[in-house]
Design a protein around this nucleic acid. Structure first.
Lengths: 185, 185, 185, 185
DNA sequence: AATGAATGAGCATTCATTCAT
DNA sequence: TATGAATGAATGCTCATTCAT
């Protein structure tokens, strides 16, 4: 049953988000998903194969929750940007430990090691920026792409700082600064 | 002579910058520094001991090149911010591969694994933001700390995007956006 | 099947008896048991884990062969003491090299290094002395505990001398002396 | 100066008594004796060379303190045996931790590994038993050698038990039993 | 007589993957 | 489908000894 495969992917997604891809051992996955080695290799050909499925899983979630359900709705641009910022903060507030952004983490860990990981992360970041560009062009006069890049960079950089400070307030400050710049007038 | 120790640190700094701390194997260090195992453990008590020395090495370099020689000079605030952005771009342009920011990389890799690494990275990020706050308060009317955080976040996030895109132009875009916002008037 | 685990324990028991715990290298165990490293760590979490299993194995054997089957039977006290001495001599005579008493060896090697080893050895020695005390109280008028301690000490000391002399006759002399003292009248 | 060599031997004697020969690392010796590697290899050709000197040192001490100054004096036999027992107890009482008998420890650790160590320990044990035989022949009617062996075995076995119990009272019990047997009449 | 840098074989352990059942 | 025994290269580290100065 494919449910089992999905369960393994979900269980591993949490591990990879928290510890990174390399530091997530097969044994961690096995005990987290409560399966044996044979079953693992029945569903996946290698740890990397699972890793790629996990990235796909993250991508699907963000495509749906962030891009489709927030950035590509019929809402007002101001509202969409505001919702995106709230969504980001709530995402990190809901975690017991501040693991950071799964894509930011994977971007830094895997970009130079594995081209397939890099491209999948790249695609998501690109889609995010592109969708945000369409939102932002209603809010600025010039070069909406650069504004979208700047906003995403601020968020990813803010999450990086937040993770290192282990303090969510820095991400909230960043969100405030973005709101003041683009929404307050 | 202590030169040998410095050589090992320098050689390892490049490896850790490029591959991360965990993925840098002792065997990589040994062949990069052209030494044997015994010699390594003569100078360092463990891989982690060396890792900490490497972080200290990065911190010293940035404290000198970025904070002292750019942000804390007698220069005009506008000039300091401009030089910082140019320095960042030149730093990444000079590398064969885009390894990203050593501190950003370590922040994401080590924050949740090793408190000593986290604190050292944290101290540098904090000093950077603080020095930048003093610069920025001459350029904005309100809450210079948040502006400094926002600028550092944009740079770190921009470097993260750059590394994943393997394209430096995105970092240049971010620098442009910062210049337009703070310097152009 | 758990047989494999037992095989490893048995093979290692001989090595530890002959060379001591520390001097028994994992590589010795691996080639003696004819297994690979991975297999070893499949059955045991560490060398120490195996070491403890080996001590348990020795304890079980002695509890059965010496304490239950000799000292705690319904036999006459004189007969029990006599059988114990014969058992001890035969134990060391049956070995190609005189490795000494596994518990005496471990007592001296491990007492100050590892509390778990010490306690396990301690328990066996204590049970031995206690069972012997019950035997001896039928043979002496005063303080059977001290007599039991004295007999065990003579045997352990005699085995120590035997091992250093590499000559079993000294142990036989000790057994004679004990027989003359407690059995001849 | 030869004083330096003696200092190294003395410092190492304590280490080997406490930790055994194998577990005493060259680095332990170096820091205990406060010397560098070069100096060590100036005085000794190897760790084993030092180890043999340490055994010689122990042998000399016991030859003097036990055999000459107690067993081979003009004292009464009863007094000599009594003094020997008191000397043994005081020897172990004066130590912070109960390291056991240096010769018993070395006998078990080295007998099967190194013939030179074995022979040196053997010689001392033999001399001890021989001297004690001469004492004991005044106290018993038959086979004084076996009595001397029995007494030494009881002491060595008692020290072994004492070390494993980490309780000196068991050695005192053994000494009592020997006194009652040979001295009380 | 002395220093400590350098060597390298050896150590216990980890881990993704394969294979027999 | 599923189990977990088996593999073996690789990892970080130890340690007695040698060597250049």
């Amino acid at each position: 049953m494919t449910n089992r495969k999905e369960e393994i992917i979900s269980a591993t997604a949490g591990l990879i988000h928290g510890k990174g891809y390399e530091s997530t051992r097969l044994s961690d996955i096995l005990s987290e998903a409560n399966i044996g080695k044979g079953q693992f290799y029945h569903y996946f050909s290698s740890k990397r194969d699972l890793g790629i499925s996990v990235v796909d899983h993250f991508v699907e979630t963000w495509q749906r929750d962030l891009i489709q359900n927030i950035l590509q709705t019929d809402d007002y641009a101001r509202s969409k940007l505001d919702k995106m910022l709230s969504w980001a903060i709530q995402y990190h507030e809901s975690q017991a430990n501040m693991h950071g952004c799964p894509f930011g983490n994977l971007a830094l860990e895997m970009s130079e090691h594995d081209e397939v990981f890099r491209e999948k992360v790249n695609k998501l970041l690109h889609d995010w920026i592109e969708s945000l560009e369409n939102v932002v062009e209603n809010l600025v006069d010039d070069e909406p792409l650069k504004h979208a890049q700047s906003i995403v960079a601020q968020l990813e950089g803010g999450i990086l700082l937040m993770k290192n400070y282990q303090d969510i307030s820095i991400l909230k400050n960043i969100a405030d600064t973005i709101r003041i710049h683009y929404l307050q007038k």
